[in-house]
Design a protein around this nucleic acid. Structure first.
Lengths: 220, 220
DNA sequence: TATAATCCGTTGTTTTTCCAACAAACTTTT
DNA sequence: AAAAGTTTGTTGGAAAAACAACGGATTATA
């Protein structure tokens, strides 16, 4: 257990919590460590979620199957990230599955215990709640921004909306993006090749310059 | 102030908090009441947010201007709802404005104080945090579902994804939706007339029956 | 009840996207 | 440094969506 804590002590969730407090936290939040083999299911669709997970080791995938059975990957969970936290706080059944992409270890924490501090009002609770609110709020803002992009009707507009949001965040007309072309197309919900074509057009029109992950918005 | 509390005492944020505790809560969270005339700006783009709002009276609109200056309405805030809570917990500047659609009254509460209970660990803090986590998590799930619909490539798929999600939520093949046609088209990010045409097609193909707000998914 | 206003479905045209296939550029491996 | 694999840009035809315009139905208003 100590070993696992070592790996996640600088995660966002545990930010600014003293190392000495971590093990008492585990008890308070009913921490449970579970191991999964590659390909195993960590959480399954429709199963009630009372604890959320903090990945200590490995890699997970959040996937969803639509009404036709088509699989789509919602996100990849890397070590130190938490998952399923929103469903833990909402009495709705999740419509997605979590699968282990490689052998993985997860620390599950009781969501109720986190938000309902014990009598002695342990000092770390305050910080944990703050961190969790930050994480969920941040996700919220990110989802809203993604919707802002996807709501545009044309690929060109989706691209420009995405790039100007990045430009604001990076506080510069020159920006570096985290996605490759396929990743960006997936994010915006469009076809990669069509998006590439649209990027070329924007370059020809003198609206944009780019090279690999570097982009520059010209004029206004 | 007492009068304002009366109006919001059964809001989701204040759920399961005793009426006697409400006024001490106001002090603890540095509650501030503000009034706005119709058309006035409640929060403006780029201005740091330290407090989130709880609308006690009136109606607000969250709007956004894109890189071309086009205005789009993100949501309408009705009394008892909170707003700007995600931005209050994230150190990012909001990219939207909040405007009063009619004369309105807002109770602003300090987000820091909410997540950092005072020394005496007032009992309502626990419940407030729980309620807030519920609200934000719920929003999160809703945003994710919207993205699930919008990510589909065709209007037909967007419609069927939306309807089967509703079917699951309402636990029935027969469902009632909250939007009119224009509202649904906006939600899915498509053209109303094209969507109407697609609905007719689905009806002809025997996949769907509908009349106004009532829909029935046939077969699988 | 008449009138106005809004909502909804239909159709034809234009624009945009998807899709598939391929070639060029760049990376990684051997 | 060659070979293999991956990523990105390009193109043309097919499919879908946007757009505009209109008429009928429903709802709200005078």
């Amino acid at each position: 257990m100590i070993n696992e804590l070592e790996k996640i002590k600088d995660s966002v969730l545990l930010q600014d919590i003293k190392v000495e407090e971590l093990s008492s936290m585990l008890g308070c939040l009913r921490g449970v460590i579970k191991h999964y083999k590659k390909g195993e299911e960590v959480l399954s669709e429709g199963a009630e979620i009372k604890k959320f997970g903090l990945l200590t080791e490995g890699k997970l995938q959040i996937v969803q199957y639509d009404y036709l059975g088509n699989k789509s990957i919602l996100s990849i969970i890397e070590p130190k990230q938490i998952f399923a936290e929103a469903y833990a706080y909402v009495n709705r059944l999740p419509s997605m599955n979590v699968e282990a992409l490689v052998d993985s270890t997860v620390l599950f924490l009781d969501s109720d215990k986190l938000s309902s501090p014990c009598q002695n009002c342990c000092s770390f609770h305050k910080q944990l709640v703050k961190n969790l609110l930050f994480i969920i709020s941040n996700k919220n803002v990110n989802l809203t921004e993604k919707i802002e992009c996807m709501a545009k009707r044309t690929t060109k507009e989706k691209l420009l909306t995405f790039l100007s949001l990045e430009s604001i965040k990076q506080n510069s007309k020159e920006i570096y993006i985290q996605y490759d072309r396929q990743g960006l197309a997936d994010y915006l919900g469009v076809e990669r090749s069509a998006m590439s074509a649209e990027l070329s057009k924007l370059k020809n029109e003198g609206i944009l310059e780019y090279n690999k992950n570097w982009f520059k918005l010209l004029q206004k």
